[in-house]
Simulated scan of single mutants.
Amino acid sequence: MSDDLIHDPNGGMPRLLEIMRRLRDPDTGCPWDIAQDFGTIAPYTIEEAYEVADAIEREAWGELKGELGDLLFQSVFHAQMAAERGLFTFDEVADTMSDKMVARHPHVFGEESNDKSPEQQTRDWETIKAAERAAKAEKGVLDGVAMGLPALLRAVKLQKRAARVGFDWPSTDEVIDKIVEEAQELREATDPDHVEEEFGDLLFVMANLARHMDIDPEAALRAANAKFTRRFGAIEAALAAEGRRPEDSDLAEMDRLWDAAKAREKAAKC
């Protein structure tokens, strides 16, 4: 194929697909790209998805276009490898998604009324998905919850599935009681394996509390990470103003600087 498409700034999706094909060409492609497989590319796919979420979280709209492009490229990469094995093509990926969206939105693309609330649509969506799982012979309530999801997200999805059939606490009070119970069991654990198990149980119940409170635990933890990074940066800045680094300080001083940064943040919100 001519290089005209490769260098066409307005080549759109055909250009990207051709670039990917050329990168994977066994004779003239990039050695790194040729050496990859589904397993080696999967971690990059997950990373790019998080970078999209990060740009949105920071409202970095100027970066979002590029991050979405990076994520799209991951889909193109996987589809190219699949095409080389005769599994499916990128067009088939797009058609599969289109078919799914049409099937799951009969109130938009079919004859059902679209006079329904978002909550009703969510319930309808879950009903349709349950039928799809049944068609795939997924018999267990928890079948089909992807193993590769981040652990907190997978915990929430498992709990949501169980809740649909009534296996759930009726309110947050029972969940908080369970958190207290699990924390005590963690305190009493002795050997390393038991400690790890109890710590996992505590995290699982914390994810359940997030679900009951309609909180995304991944988003909440990302926000906590950002807050910690911001406040620790303030500690570093305060020490740097005196020509010092954190290792030149001690816990008591850094705690005071942390509290000062916390107070400034609260004042700024008032």
Rank of each mutant, 00 (worst) to 15 (best):
L221G: 02
A207L: 04
E198D: 07
M147N: 12
P118E: 06
V195T: 12
D193Y: 05
A60N: 08
A53V: 05
L251D: 06
K100I: 11
E51C: 09
G110A: 06
D99E: 15
D173K: 07
E84A: 13
V165L: 06
P217E: 08
D115N: 14
E59T: 11
G233H: 00
E242C: 06
N10T: 08
G11K: 01
R154P: 01
N10H: 13
A55V: 00
N208L: 15
T28Q: 06
Q184A: 13
L221A: 05
A223K: 14
E138K: 08
K227T: 12
G86L: 08
A162M: 11
E84H: 04
D143F: 04
R187A: 12
A224S: 05
I34L: 11
P170R: 10
V205S: 00
W32T: 08
K100W: 11
I176Q: 04
R222A: 14
E196S: 12
Q120N: 14
L158K: 07
W169P: 00
D193F: 11
K266I: 11
M101V: 15
D168W: 05
A82F: 00
I6C: 00
L142M: 07
A220L: 14
E132S: 02
V93Q: 10
S117P: 10
C270T: 14
F77N: 14
I46L: 09
G66Y: 05
K136N: 08
E92P: 00
A49G: 07
S98I: 07
A130K: 04
G110P: 01
C30K: 13
R161A: 13
A155I: 02
M206F: 06
A189T: 03
D4N: 02
G11P: 06
W32I: 14
D54A: 13
R244L: 09
A42W: 15
D3S: 03
L158H: 10
A94G: 00
G12S: 03
A260K: 09
P14T: 02
I19A: 05
A35S: 15
A60H: 11
S75C: 12
H107Q: 10
F73T: 07
L142P: 01
E196C: 09
L153F: 06
L71M: 08
A131M: 06
R264V: 03
F232D: 03
S113I: 00
E119I: 14
L202R: 04
A261M: 04
C30V: 13
P14S: 12
G148R: 10
W169L: 14
E47Y: 02
R58T: 07
R85I: 04
D25V: 01
V93I: 12
A137L: 15
D216M: 01
A183D: 10
D193R: 11
T96L: 12
G140T: 04
R164P: 07
V180A: 15
E218T: 10
Y44N: 14
L23I: 00
V205G: 04
Q36G: 04
A260M: 11
V93R: 06
D214Q: 15
L203R: 00
V175A: 03
L239E: 02
K139M: 15
A103D: 08
G233K: 02
A267S: 15
A224M: 10
I235W: 03
S2Q: 03
G11C: 09
L17E: 08
D168Q: 09
E92Y: 00
E253G: 01
A263Y: 08
S75F: 14
D193L: 11
G200K: 04
M213E: 12
A155M: 13
A137E: 13
L203Q: 05
